[in-house]
């Protein structure tokens, strides 16, 4: 790693005319985004709108069919970029290493890159675990953790990297509302604590409108709206209004046939 922890500063993310196809099916089309250094940018959208695919392009795990993603002006899919920019991705599933304990999961990055001697690594790992109230889980394996704890361990694992960019894929999915709120608080407080550029992919409206500096709404692989949470609330586009204010219609005519079939 060429950059030391002390040099690390939040960086900007640019997405230009991004298009992604899988076997001829267009999943993302004409996406243009700009995330400022230190900003919390939330990408919302219904299931299947392409949010996670977009995040994978930003993380450099996949390359776009056309268009480009730039982090601090560099292509994130290149190894050299990862040498220069510390980028952490918190996966929806946590993606913890099942054969390693919580401590080893967190220490892996520091050990592999030989960033610190072992006592300093221990100190940094314990400090990240303390920040997320996970001290008691230090010796446990991922299979022994609850869903919420796995998410917090995944965030802690990202934290020890002292990232310049934090990407979160559905950080509150499969969590109860209280745990979801805790995760939202953690994301917001990390921006203050470690000065990081954050991109959060979520379909959790409350999370997005509470913690975001700016929000983008993705629908059918295209960017439908972008702006501040207040601006998004004021948006009058019926699709955006429906997405932000879903209603439960118990008399939906689509389901009348089901009732008839059961009678």
């Amino acid at each position: 790693m060429s950059s030391t922890n002390e040099e690390r500063k939040p960086v900007a993310i640019e997405v230009q005319e991004l298009r992604k196809e899988y076997s001829g099916v267009t999943v993302l089309d004409g996406i243009n985004l700009s995330v400022k250094p230190g900003e919390i940018f939330v990408i919302m959208g219904p299931s299947g709108s392409g949010k996670s695919v977009l995040l994978r392009q930003v993380a450099g795990l996949e390359t776009p069919t056309s268009g480009q993603v730039r982090i601090d002006g560099m292509d994130p899919s290149l190894e050299e970029t990862r040498d220069k920019v510390a980028l952490a991705l918190v996966f929806q599933s946590g993606a913890l290493f099942n054969s390693l304990s919580v401590f080893e999961n967190l220490a892996l990055y520091l050990r592999e890159h030989r960033l610190h001697p072992e006592p300093v690594i221990r100190e940094k790992v314990m400090s990240a675990l303390q920040m997320l109230s996970l001290e008691k889980a230090v010796g446990k394996f991922p299979s022994e953790l609850s869903g919420g704890m796995k998410k917090r361990v995944a965030i802690a694992r990202a934290l020890v990297m002292q990232p310049q960019v934090m990407l979160y894929d559905e950080p509150t999915s499969e969590l109860d509302p209280t745990m979801g709120a805790t995760i939202a608080e953690i994301i917001a407080s990390l921006r203050q604590a470690i000065a990081v550029t954050s991109v959060v992919v979520s379909h959790d409206r409350d999370l997005a409108l509470t913690i975001a500096d700016r929000v983008a709404v993705l629908m059918h692989g295209r960017l439908k709206a972008e702006g501040t949470p207040a601006g998004l609330r004021a948006n009058t586009d019926p699709e955006i209004v429906d997405f932000l204010n879903p209603t439960i219609n118990l008399d939906n005519p689509r389901f009348k046939n089901l009732e008839a079939a059961n009678e």
């Binding site: 790693m1 994978r56 993380a59 450099g60 795990l61 190894e79 990862r82 040498d83 980028l87 952490a88 991705l89 996966f91 993606a95 913890l96 290493f97 892996l108 990055y109 592999e112 890159h113 990297m161």
Partner: peptide
């Protein structure tokens, strides 16, 4: 993927 994002 987690390893790749950790530059390992």
């Amino acid at each position: 993927d987690a390893l790749v994002t950790m530059n390992i």
